[in-house]
């Protein structure tokens, strides 16, 4: 705040009259720009410009070598909507996001609670929970891919030794099973962030609220659903929105573990987009898919915010 006053005085010094002149008023009005400017530039360069570029590309005719051959209007979009695989891929993406986010949120509510409790070695456990977050997602996915390998995977070894199965199972070759395993990996890498947001949320709840509840004779169950959960709403909101966006756009897990195959049986919109560009050599159609993807995520986040009445949180 001090800086603002200083700046305002400097601007005033250059004005001739003591009464606020037009120049000074403009100066005052523009002052916030100095502070907002950098972030506005940042948003324009890293967010708005790529979006504009993406939309522009989706309207172009681009040859397989990468040369722009001119305008194509909505042709890329009609091509995209003609793909037989589009609808299953979109439905799968929605299922993938819902499954991963819901599981992650439920588990992280429990983990957050655990991390908030006092017990010996809590610091160690907190660090351990961060590990999947610190490790590269690609690395985690590759490790799981090899753990689930048909020939040398440790999962098969353990199950064989326990006599739960009598011959190795090719886990990632069957679309449904592969999808479930990949969702598990996605939950695994999403948990740390979500748990820590929940933990932060738990720590903002004042102790006296709980005290009051105790005095009123509320049991642990009542306390949790009557106090903790409602007060955690902002934290849950933030964690799940960021989680939705991350999971929706998650490329490395699926790409490393199944490559979206066999066929398109485990593709989500993100891997499908990649295949359109680099297998089908159709950059324009891929950009159209990217625009559709972008709109889908926008709609999903808006619907979610509306459903959870975020305006109340902001006030």
């Amino acid at each position: 705040m001090q800086d603002v006053k200083l700046r305002a005085r400097d601007a005033g010094a250059s004005a001739p009259a003591p009464r606020p002149s037009a120049l000074r008023r403009i100066g005052l009005a523009l002052t916030p720009l100095l502070w907002l400017g950098p972030s506005l530039v940042l948003i324009a360069v890293v967010v708005l410009w790529p979006v504009a570029e993406m939309v522009r590309t989706s309207l172009l005719k681009i040859s397989s070598s990468g040369v722009t051959l001119g305008d194509r209007g909505g042709g890329n979009y009609t091509d995209l909507f003609d793909e037989d695989d589009l609808v299953p891929v979109v439905l799968r993406t929605v299922g993938w996001v819902a499954g991963v986010v819901i599981t992650t949120m439920v588990l992280s509510l429990a983990i957050g609670q655990l991390l908030n409790a006092r017990f010996p070695g809590r610091r160690l456990v907190r660090w351990a929970v961060i590990v999947p977050w610190a490790a590269s997602v690609l690395m985690t996915s590759l490790i799981w891919k090899w753990m689930l390998d048909n020939y040398s995977g440790v999962v098969n070894r353990v199950l064989l030794d326990l006599h739960l199965i009598d011959k190795p199972e090719n886990w990632l070759a069957h679309p449904r099973g592969a999808m479930l395993w990949m969702m598990w990996v996605a939950v695994f890498v999403s948990l740390p962030f979500a748990s820590f947001v929940i933990l932060a949320g738990l720590q903002t709840i004042p102790e006296d609220v709980y005290e009051a509840a105790r005095v009123d004779g509320a049991g642990p169950f009542r306390t949790y659903f009557g106090i903790t959960l409602p007060l955690l709403r902002p934290a849950i909101l933030i964690a799940s929105i960021i989680n939705v966006i991350n999971v929706f756009n998650s490329f490395p897990i699926i790409w490393a573990m199944t490559g979206g195959g066999p066929g398109h049986a485990t593709d989500t919109t993100t891997t499908f987009m990649y295949k359109l560009a680099f297998y089908d050599q159709n950059v324009g159609e891929s950009a159209a898919m990217a625009v559709v993807n972008f709109l889908m995520i926008l709609v999903m986040v808006l619907l979610y915010l509306r459903a959870s009445r975020w305006r109340e949180e902001v006030r």
Partner: peptide
């Protein structure tokens, strides 16, 4: 290239 891409995928 795009034919080979389709073959690889399906």
């Amino acid at each position: 290239t795009s034919v080979a891409g389709a073959v690889k995928q399906s």
